[in-house]
């Protein structure tokens, strides 16, 4: 994994933790607009980052877009634990 990919993966983890924590909070505080705004901001950046990582380094999840390729990219790359 090169430096840029490592940086993007770390950012994805950071966003992921924030979304996870906010999801639990919003389950009990569904009307908290302050938290909803924060969640929406994080989720948007998370989706963009996921797409960027998929384009640059291959899909992180089998649900990532595969329409640009005739091959099944998900199985065609090294698994994350084999880096």
């Amino acid at each position: 994994m090169n430096e840029e990919q490592t940086r993007l993966m770390l950012r994805l983890q950071q966003l992921g933790l924030t979304m996870d924590d906010l999801r639990e909070y919003l389950d009990t505080h569904p009307d908290d607009s302050f938290a909803i705004e924060r969640f929406n901001m994080s989720a948007q950046e998370y989706r963009q980052l996921l797409e960027q990582l998929a384009e640059d380094y291959g899909p992180l999840s089998w649900t990532c877009d595969n329409s640009e390729s005739d091959n099944w990219l998900w199985a065609g790359q090294a698994f994350p634990w084999t880096y």
Binding site: Q14, H29, F34, A35, R38
Partner: peptide, 21 residues
């Protein structure tokens, strides 16, 4: 008691602390 939040950690600090609160 229901606690309403007034501030969040930034993304980096949240991952380090393990919480966004």
């Amino acid at each position: 008691p229901p606690q309403c939040v007034e501030r969040f950690y930034d993304y980096e600090s949240a991952l380090i602390s393990g919480t966004v609160f």
